[in-house]
Computed example of a mutant assay.
Amino acid sequence: MAKLASSFPPPPAGRPAAPADLSWAFSLGRTPGSDQLAARMTRAALEALGTGSAHSARISHATGLACAHLLAHGCARRYRVALGVDGPRCSVTVTDYGFDLPASGCDGDPVARARAAGELSRELSAEEGVRLEDVQVHHARDGAVLVRFTARLPVPGTAAAHTVPGQRTSPDGPGRTGGPGRTGGPPGRG
Rank of each mutant, 00 (worst) to 15 (best):
K3W: 02
L4A: 08
L4E: 06
S6W: 02
F8D: 10
P9A: 03
A13W: 00
R15M: 01
P16Y: 01
A17T: 08
A18C: 01
P19R: 08
A20V: 04
D21A: 13
S23V: 09
W24F: 14
W24I: 12
W24Y: 09
A25H: 13
L28R: 02
G29H: 06
G33Y: 06
S34V: 12
D35Q: 13
Q36F: 04
Q36N: 15
L37N: 04
A38Y: 06
A39Y: 03
T42F: 06
A44W: 04
L49M: 09
G50S: 06
T51K: 07
T51C: 04
A54T: 08
H55P: 09
H55C: 11
S56Y: 00
H61I: 13
A62C: 13
A62I: 13
T63C: 15
L65Q: 15
A66H: 04
A68H: 12
H69T: 07
H69Q: 11
C75Q: 00
A76C: 00
A76L: 00
R77I: 00
Y79S: 01
R80F: 01
A82C: 03
A82Q: 13
A82W: 06
L83C: 06
G84F: 02
D86R: 08
G87A: 05
P88R: 14
C90F: 00
S91I: 07
V92R: 02
V94T: 07
T95E: 08
G98D: 01
D100W: 00
D100P: 05
L101V: 01
L101A: 10
D107G: 14
A112R: 08
A112Q: 09
R113C: 09
R115K: 14
A117Q: 07
A117S: 10
A117V: 08
G118Q: 13
L120Q: 09
L124M: 13
E128Q: 11
E128H: 10
E128V: 14
G129F: 03
V130I: 14
V130P: 02
L132G: 08
D134S: 15
V135S: 15
A140H: 09
G143H: 07
A144Y: 02
A144K: 11
V145F: 05
L146T: 03
L146C: 01
L146Q: 04
V147E: 14
V147H: 06
R148V: 08
T150W: 04
T150N: 15
R152F: 09
P156Y: 05
G157Y: 05
A160S: 15
A161V: 12
H162R: 14
P165A: 04
T169Y: 10
T169F: 08
S170D: 13
P174I: 04
G175W: 01
G185P: 12
P186Q: 04
P186G: 11
